[in-house]
């Protein structure tokens, strides 16, 4: 594998999977936080990034395109090598262990030890906003935007719950992976993107030490 072309030293380069969905909003959020951000649509581009965000969108469409363009293998290879991820809604579904109400041919990488149910609050008229308390972010509460959102039904022992709605997790962390059923990229509140980047920074510092 060729050496990854590096940007400025120490700057984190985040890729946003750009097959479909609200890609631009994630790119903008990461850039506002001072990271480098690029779209990822080809096998080579998976190797050029330190971390990957998978945006909101239609999980079945992304799954189909990953298969059609032979991107599943490079994605899995990078995930197996420990590439950190930030996933929102459709992205969380793609990285879960098991999908309820999905299509049988739909990708679930098992990166996150979760069982999720797609569109589990109902149809679009049931999409909602709610204030979320994330202890690590402090005040004010984070405005969660849930659009035809999935629900997390079961989660493994290694999964840390960062925020819940009605007793069910809506934000989880597993190692350097952060998974959300809502859309921080739509609110202009970048605290979760920031938190994700800070985790990567400290992991990097520990590696260097």
């Amino acid at each position: 594998m060729p050496a990854r072309p590096r940007g400025k030293l120490n700057i984190i380069r985040v890729g946003v999977l750009a097959l479909q969905g609200d890609v631009r909003e994630h790119l903008a959020a990461f850039r506002r936080c001072g990271a480098e951000a690029m779209t990822v649509r080809s096998a080579d581009e998976f190797d050029e990034v330190d971390a990957l965000a998978i945006p909101g969108g239609e999980s079945t469409t992304m799954s189909k395109l990953l298969a059609a363009f032979n991107l599943e293998k490079p994605l899995r290879r990078r995930l197996d090598a420990g590439m950190p991820t930030l996933t929102t809604c459709a992205g969380l579904i793609l990285l879960s262990r098991e999908i309820v109400d999905g299509r049988p041919d739909q990708l679930a990488t098992g990166t996150l030890d979760l069982t999720v149910r797609r569109n589990a609050y109902g149809s679009q008229v049931d999409s909602f906003e709610a204030d979320l308390v994330l202890s690590e972010l402090g005040d004010p509460p984070f405005r969660g935007v849930f659009i035809r959102a999935p629900r997390i039904h079961t989660w493994g022992a290694g999964v840390e719950v960062l925020a819940s709605v009605g007793g069910e997790p809506v934000a989880v962390r597993q190692g350097l992976h952060v998974g959300l059923t809502f859309h921080p990229e739509m609110t202009g509140d970048d605290r979760i993107h920031q938190l994700f980047l800070e985790q990567l920074e400290s992991a990097r510092t520990e590696d260097a030490a």
Partner: peptide, 17 residues
């Protein structure tokens, strides 16, 4: 439910499709 952000938001999720 039914706020501007979730209504416009679904369209955001359809982008590129």
């Amino acid at each position: 439910t039914g706020g501007l952000r979730v209504k416009r938001g679904l369209a955001e999720m359809l982008k590129g499709g």
